[in-house]
Design a protein around this nucleic acid. Structure first.
Lengths: 146, 146
DNA sequence: CTGCATCCTATCCGATACTG
DNA sequence: CAGTATCGGATAGGATGCAG
């Protein structure tokens, strides 16, 4: 009595291979990966790390060096957070006018390699990504996913 | 915040050795590093990449596997963007009910190593970061920087 | 099951003004 | 120069409802 529509059986479930990859079993603190990603996630932290990777810099120096014109407010917030996380060391000199120097800590430097690797990957694969985007956009003219 | 994929000049041949960290001389398009960071910056992309690193997964599988309870909306958006960037391949099966499989492309897999490295770093240094934060918070009881 | 559209909220971030 | 505080726009992201 059923209509003749074919119900396709779902194919075999993909067996979980072998790699736990990250082994995250604590949904609460989310494995702590967020601790880093949230930092790298904001707009400026990576640039600050990159700039400080080449040496000590003062506030204004930092601001000028960072591409995209970071506002004073955001630079302050960014360096404060990085300092709080122990990635950046802040040194205040009681001079007139005041002078504050920022530099990476040991911890901060250890992150530099990864950030650099990420940047290299980005640069190396940018053409591929750009091409993929153009192709996708061409095939999906009216998509809400930009 | 990604600028429209204009990909201008960018003479950054970037055959960088390992002295200059990122060699960014184009403030305009920000070296293209943003192209990647904007993806990694959002809350979920990294988790999707991590999950797909272990093999093909369906939509619902992905949603259940990701820690932190990603909403349906965000998972859809995230995988679409990754697909657009050529990092994820999407395969639709005309079954009832519908079934869609997601898997990393070659490009996506090449990013996996970096993402894993980042995750490893995060896990390894989480205690240090947590300690730094506690110390900082103790020394700055009434700070607006959380 | 997969996915889109809508509404609504939290947060990011820039602009601006003011202090030491 | 370095930093803080406030306002307001833009946007990421959750909840819900509906469609294929």
């Amino acid at each position: 009595m059923s209509a003749g529509h074919t119900v396709v059986t779902t194919p075999a479930r993909s067996a979980v291979i072998d790699e736990p990859v990250i082994t995250c079993d604590t949904p609460q603190d989310e494995c702590g990966v967020r601790d880093v990603l949230d930092r790298l996630g904001d707009r400026w932290s990576v640039y600050v790390i990159v700039e400080l990777a080449s040496g000590v810099k003062r506030f204004k120096q930092l601001q000028r060096a960072i591409p995209g014109a970071i506002s004073q407010r955001m630079l302050t917030l960014t360096v404060r957070r990085l300092e709080r996380d122990g990635l950046v060391k802040r040194t205040v000199y009681a001079t007139v006018p005041p002078q504050v120097e920022y530099e990476l800590t040991e911890l901060g430097h250890s992150l530099t390699h990864l950030v650099k690797a990420l940047a290299d990957w980005s640069i190396a694969h940018r053409p591929a990504i750009a091409a993929a985007r153009e192709e996708w956009d061409a095939e999906n003219p009216d998509s809400s996913v930009r």
